[in-house]
């Protein structure tokens, strides 16, 4: 699996930044006092946290706690009323959504963000968009540059597809495949982007125990083999407790706890707000 070390092998120059080494001193993502309001409802209230390179960071909380809102803030869909976000030394709030992939942020969707009428291959290749260059003319005339580019990036996608066991479905339309496979395609699509930070929005929602186990292993594999930092929003407590390095608990848009799984499990505030009521 050595070839799976993220390498911006094609169309990109910053080879040095790609390999993320966990470093406890510097943080990859630094969220500082984010507040988000919708017409009087406070979705996020002064939320702060940091994610270190390569860390597996989970966000939990009851329904409506602001987890998905947080993701939408991080992916620049919602503009927070106040607060600062620093990502890898850049002010995240100055970026547009379509600039995040180049900055190194990828995201999966709760209700799947796949392109249903594209094949697995095309879905994955679309994720290399920001690393590719060819336009209408070089593509339309089938110029050598565009052909070479397609070939190199396809090779990379094939590797990721193999890593997730998607090879057999390579030429199939995404919409024709089972839900579990679709979830994996979406994961693959995000890995193909070679992100530094991967946001996972309920990756195992609607899955059985076996499938959940499989995805959990993939997530751990992403951390250990690729060194990509991940923020995981999930309802499956057992899974979160089992794999996360650190956990943040949100309730009514407020951060009520942050710490390692063992600490969270015993935190009285958390038990009152979440565990006691949901499970």
């Amino acid at each position: 699996m050595s070839q799976l070390t993220p390498s911006r092998s094609a169309g990109s120059s910053d080879q040095s930044q790609a390999v993320a080494t966990p470093d406890s001193n510097s943080s990859l993502l630094k969220v500082d006092g984010i507040t988000l309001k919708f017409k009087g409802v406070t979705a996020l209230n002064n939320v702060s946290f940091e994610v270190k390179p390569g860390e597996l960071f989970a966000v939990i909380g009851p329904n409506g706690a602001g987890k998905t809102s947080l993701f939408n803030v991080l992916t620049r869909v919602y503009q927070p009323g106040s607060g600062k976000i620093d990502f890898n030394g850049r002010d995240l709030l100055t970026l547009r959504t379509d600039q995040l992939s180049s900055a190194g942020i990828a995201r999966t969707f709760q209700n799947l963000g796949l392109f249903p009428l594209m094949t697995v291959e095309e879905n994955l290749l679309t994720s290399r968009h920001h690393l590719m260059k060819s336009g209408v003319f070089s593509g339309g005339f089938g110029l050598g540059t565009s052909n070479r580019e397609e070939k190199i990036h396809r090779q990379h996608c094939l590797e990721i597809a193999d890593f997730l066991g998607l090879g057999p479905w390579w030429d199939r339309l995404a919409r024709d495949l089972p839900y579990g496979i679709q979830k994996k395609i979406e994961l693959a699509r995000n890995l193909v982007m070679e992100p530094k930070l991967l946001l996972l929005d309920e990756p195992v929602a609607g899955m059985n125990q076996e499938e959940t186990q499989e995805i959990a292993e993939v997530i751990l594999g992403i951390q250990s083999k690729m060194g990509i930092a991940q923020i995981l929003v999930e309802h499956d407590m057992a899974m979160v407790m089992g794999i996360a390095d650190r956990i943040m608990v949100l309730d009514f848009g407020q951060r009520i706890a942050l710490g390692e799984p063992s600490q969270i499990q015993t935190d009285p505030e958390v038990i009152r707000a979440y565990l006691g009521q949901a499970d």
């Binding site: 992939s101 392109f115 920001h130």
Partner: peptide
Amino acid sequence: FVNNVMKRRIGRAFRAVRDREIAAELLGIN
């Protein structure tokens, strides 16, 4: 020409925009 475009980078971006705008943006498509 059109078939070539649609098989390649820009063509995929077209279809991505058609199917899921926000997902397309997150993949770096303007």
